[in-house]
Design a protein around this nucleic acid. Structure first.
Lengths: 316, 316
DNA sequence: CCAATTTACGTTCTCCGTAATCATA
DNA sequence: TATGATTACGGAGAACGTAAATTGG
């Protein structure tokens, strides 16, 4: 009851003062419209129109109901419009969290690409250290995060997309460079990032694997600070490769890849997945960016509804 | 689309976070509810819920639509309530017009009786001369009028209910009273009401039929003024019988019925009839008051809908 | 007789419940 | 395995259109 067409029919009859013309406007046969109005009257328990062979006019109750009907219909139309706008990405909001390294390397490019495609969707981006990012996803404060794999997934769902190699950042040596990164370090102190970063456990593992001391001489939160200390020859540090293009390392510093150990970066979502069309489009962009060739390996996208409603899901 | 139950179903699922429990609440089988939600999603073109084996949760679009759904549903409920209140005479308004003679004689009693039956219905009563009353009905300013029969009915519909006899109001004679009203008048001047009253043409016809002069010595708008003039022995006047119980005639005045000539009083409506339940109840009261025995002569009341919607009509 | 609405009736589509299937913890 | 959602399918009911009847000028 109170279907949309029924209300439109009623309003049309009220406005046109004629069943015949109203039936024409709402694309219904005149008897069907008559029956529809009669249903409405039965439902409400009173007459809405004063019938006369020469057209019809509203009863007082009908006039009163007309106001309700207009409000209901307007609200319905707006709900439809809103939903369609969202579905067609004419509006929407994605709250994105990212590690600082991601936020300062590839995320800006992704953002730019996404906004070019969907200029009417708002992006809310915040950056933070791994632990904070994980909390945001867990608490539903953000819809999606680009971060490292969490230790315990729980309700979280991590999909790896790319790997970030570690590099050793050392003061520039006077002699020739050694291809072995461990030779470069010599007896320099270890400038570590703080334990709440995603780099720190990785760096420690790399040092351990190389039989080197993991006890840091310094613990620094910001990568830029660590680099500055290296420039002053206070020690060496291990950073994600992506930071090379982010920071101005300067001539006093040289870098050397640390093979074998890499950081998994990817998408962190909370289950159950709250798929909005905008988020879906963003994940499609991620997929195209990081897996341009294969579209069926670890990312799977399947349409659910014939009418364009699709539920893409990314699983590891 | 956007049926009431569908919105209730959606809201229930959103609130309970479970199809099963929501199905129980809205008295639907769980598959039926699932299908109903699916229809809604197809209509809107997006997913409203993030499905998970352990319950469901709203997507951002779903959260947004929930606000719309609540507003639409609330408006629907209120429209239903309003209509039912009107239908059950828990509220309503009747705008009534009446001639001064009616408004000061039988209408107050009718009003009292109606308000006793239906204390929640508002009555808007205005009195005026015949011409004005007719205009009000014609312009839709009132819903019903208790007045005399108009000269040209046109879109108007008059149903006679009772007759108002004419009486001659004369200064008290010293000698014995004559049974013939014409003897009482002697050579007294004629104090007439103004031509826009319904009495005047009637009074003139009565005088004409009795071969008496119809040229008035005075023309007065208010009956009370005419009576006061008779008390001063300025002449005689012809008034509706109902005014006897309205005005304090005093001992200086005596009245005498004028047989044969009577004023038809009744209901004046505009076509098409705008039947509200309240107006219908009022007309039922009129019918009972003026035709307590016969219910089928000139007043006909027939039920239209099984659900209590009835369309009473009064035709001559 | 004409214009407009209502009634009658058959077809089609939708809604809904039962039963079976699927997915996940 | 147990819980909860979806699919499959069949019947009851609603929506709709065509055609005939009704009403009032």
């Amino acid at each position: 009851m109170f279907a949309r067409r029924q209300l439109q029919a009623f309003i049309s009859v009220a406005e046109l003062g004629s069943f015949t013309r109203a039936a024409d406007r709402v694309h219904l046969s005149q008897p069907a419209l008559s029956s529809s109005i009669r249903k409405l009257e039965t439902l409400l328990g009173l007459s809405l129109f004063a019938r006369d062979t020469r057209g019809v006019s509203l009863t007082p109750a009908g006039r009163h109901f007309l106001e309700h009907a207009r409000r209901i219909l307007a609200e319905m139309e707006q709900a439809l419009d809103d939903a369609h706008s969202m579905a067609h990405l004419q509006r929407g909001l994605i709250r994105i969290a990212a590690l600082p390294s991601v936020a300062s390397s590839c995320l800006p490019r992704l953002t730019q690409a996404f906004l070019t495609r969907h200029p009417h969707v708002d992006l809310d981006i915040r950056d933070g250290l791994a632990r904070a990012v994980q909390e945001w996803v867990n608490d539903g404060e953000v819809d999606i995060a680009l971060t490292s794999r969490p230790e315990h997934e729980g309700l979280l769902n991590f999909t790896p997309l790319w790997q970030d190699e570690l590099i050793a950042v050392t003061p520039r040596a006077n002699g020739t460079q050694s291809p072995d990164w461990r030779r470069q370090l010599g007896e320099l102190p270890y400038i570590a990032l703080t334990p709440d970063t995603s780099i720190r456990p990785l760096a420690d593992r790399a040092l351990q694997a190389a039989n080197m001391a993991t006890s840091p001489a310094w613990e620094i939160a910001q990568m830029s600070s660590a680099i500055a200390m290296v420039r002053e020859r206070l020690g060496y540090t291990l950073l994600p490769a992506s930071c090379i293009e982010v920071f101005n390392l300067g001539s006093e510093v040289q870098t050397c890849p640390v093979p074998g150990i890499a950081r998994e970066l990817g998408i962190l979502l909370r289950r159950p997945l709250q798929q909005s069309p905008a988020l879906e489009a963003f994940m499609t962009l991620l997929q195209e960016t990081f897996q341009p060739a294969s579209a069926a390996s670890s990312m799977r996208s399947d349409s659910a509804h014939a009418s364009g409603v699709s539920t893409a899901s990314i699983n590891s």
